[in-house]
Design a protein around this nucleic acid. Structure first.
Lengths: 194, 194
DNA sequence: ACCGCCGGTAGACAGCGTCTACGCCCACCT
DNA sequence: AGGTGGGCGTAGACGCTGTCTACCGGCGGT
């Protein structure tokens, strides 16, 4: 069977992912997705009661993609937890920059009505990974790993968002987000060993 | 003159601010704002060429409000830079929590087309304040103040966003954002003096 | 007195999300 | 073998949105 003959549900999600990656959030209208999936505008309703349900499914795909990318880069990052953390952080920021539309969608909690589609649980594996890494990289005197990891994630996320907004480079004088990334890691985990 | 007789432009912005505070982002449609301001749906066009221009004006009001709140709480925060930083951070997080709709709008850079209405410059005074405080609170061996301030702001912003999203408490086990706030400040500025 | 323009109205248009009525076609049951 | 029911997709309607355009009333300048 040709790829066009897969289920309508999967085609809708795929078309949505493609659209948000290519054109950004504003392009992901229900009718446009239906058009690209080759079905009528009423068809999605059979699988997603409402527009936000479809958007949530698309965002979940985004989280899965991000998680997969992180795991992949970590395979090549060696064993040192600190190095692995750097790789994770870089992947996070790169993802946000390269797939800005998807990244924005993923954190539109006002849209996603996260409760229904268990979207929060979708992002949990990634965070668990982060906690483990932090637990191995932290100094004994540091705060508990989950707190440290939460603060670090927040920092990472803030960098991604504010950087995308274009405000940080102007204000900090930094010409790349790497400066901020290293500052964040050094701050939360102590200065780099070498 | 009664308050209803002020200029249409100001009434539009005021109605928009009121709407976004009360009902959230999704309620701030051009036509609804016009309705609340008591004018026809075509009137806003005279002052704001497009919807996003009006939204940008509303967001600017939000930045002004936040800046005013920060300055106010800092008046009562004494002289110690670290104490002032805590006050600033708390005000930032409280603002995000209390005026969620406005906070979300303020950072919808995909909507705001920030270039046109100099929105970035609007947030600059706040950041400058942060840089000054950091410069006074940092240790001599630390990174330059703008970088430190940028990283700290990103951390603060990430906490606000992820906290609002409801994901952090679940993952970190923390029941309030204060834990993360303190973790962030300790990380970027060294452990609290007392 | 006339003209022009500023500021607001009102209607049209395309696109949106949602709802409903309708048909198709396949699977199952007697 | 002959209905028959239900899942799946279509098509049209509705009210809403943002934008565009034609209109018009009243005020100021010449």
């Amino acid at each position: 069977m040709s790829p066009e003959e897969t289920g309508v549900r999967a085609r809708l999600v795929a078309a949505g992912v493609d659209l948000v990656l290519r054109e950004g959030q504003s392009a992901v209208s229900l009718r446009e997705i239906a058009r690209r999936a080759g079905v009528s505008h009423g068809a999605p309703r059979r699988y997603f009661p409402t527009h936000v349900d479809l958007l949530s499914a698309i965002a979940r795909e985004g989280f899965a993609d991000l998680t997969a990318r992180v795991e992949k880069t970590m395979d090549a990052a060696g064993e040192d937890p600190r190095t692995r953390l750097v790789a994770l952080a870089r992947t996070y920021l790169d993802f946000a920059a390269a797939h800005r539309g998807m990244f924005e969608l993923m954190f539109r909690h006002d849209l996603l009505a996260s409760g229904r589609l268990r979207l929060r649980e979708t992002s949990l594996p990634l965070f668990t990974l982060l906690v483990d890494l932090v637990a191995r990289a932290r100094q004994p005197a540091d705060k508990p790993a989950p707190v440290l990891a939460g603060a670090l994630w927040a920092n990472l996320h803030g960098i991604a968002q504010l950087w995308a907004w274009g405000s940080l480079p102007l204000a900090t004088g930094a010409t790349d987000d790497d400066t901020l990334l290293r500052a964040a890691l050094d701050a939360h985990l102590g200065p780099a060993p070498h």
